[in-house]
Each structure stands twice: as C-alpha cells, then as structure tokens.
C-alpha cells in the first residue's frame, strides 16, 4: 500500500479549518503523526463494505421531541448565560468585529 503523506500545506490548511495556530515544530510533528494514523486506519479496507448501511447513531431512536406543553427548565437567564464571559456589555457577549 502506498504510504499516505500529509504535506506541510495540508497541515496548515487543516489548522486553518480548525482555527488552530501551530508552531513550525507542531506542523512538522503533525505531518508525521497524522500520516501514521491515517496509515493505520487503512485496515478497514480489508472488510467488504459495498452493501453495508452506515451507522450514525446506535440507539435507533427516532423523532425524539418534548411532549406538548412541557416546560424547558434548561433555559438560562441572560445574566446566567453571560456570567462566564470575559468580555460582555450589559447582558451581551462582546465579539471581535466581523466586517
């Protein structure tokens, strides 16, 4: 089997998608480590999966809803929801400028 190699560019692209800042050393390390892992999981190709239906959840529960009229006690007040934020104005989260 051909060894899969992740390039520096691949790693930097993944870091961008994941919103992670990596040092040069980390980039190099992940090139190797991710490549090794990807190599290992190739063993799944030994099994025939053409006609198998994928499993995305194992409980087989469907259409799980709240019963009508039930109250959702999870709701947090604005004060509670914002109490852990480092930057807030009144009861709002402060974020960086987007535009």
């Amino acid at each position: 089997m051909k060894k899969i190699e992740l390039t520096r560019e691949d790693i930097l692209h993944l870091a961008k998608l994941s919103s992670l800042k990596l040092t040069d050393q980390e980039v190099e390390k992940y090139c190797n480590q991710l490549g090794e892992t990807v190599e290992f999981v190739k063993n799944l190709k030994e099994l025939k999966t053409d006609v198998v239906i994928p499993t995305s959840q194992i409980t087989n529960l469907t259409d799980v809803f709240f019963t009508d009229g039930e109250t959702n006690k999870r709701v947090l007040t604005k004060e509670k929801a914002t109490e852990n934020a480092k930057y807030k104005k009144e009861k709002y989260f402060v974020v960086k400028r987007i535009m």
Binding site: Y30, Q33, V38, F93, V95
Partner: peptide, 20 residues
C-alpha cells in the same frame, strides 16, 4: 467568547485529534 479561554489554550493531544 462565551466562557473559558480561547483556542490557543488547547494542549497537544486535543490539537492532534481536532486536526485528524
């Protein structure tokens, strides 16, 4: 933004798993 510290605080293992 809403709680905790930003993504620069992730350790090696978490970063590796997120990337994969």
């Amino acid at each position: 933004v809403r709680y905790g510290n930003d993504r620069s605080f992730f350790g090696q293992e978490a970063k590796r798993r997120i990337m994969l």
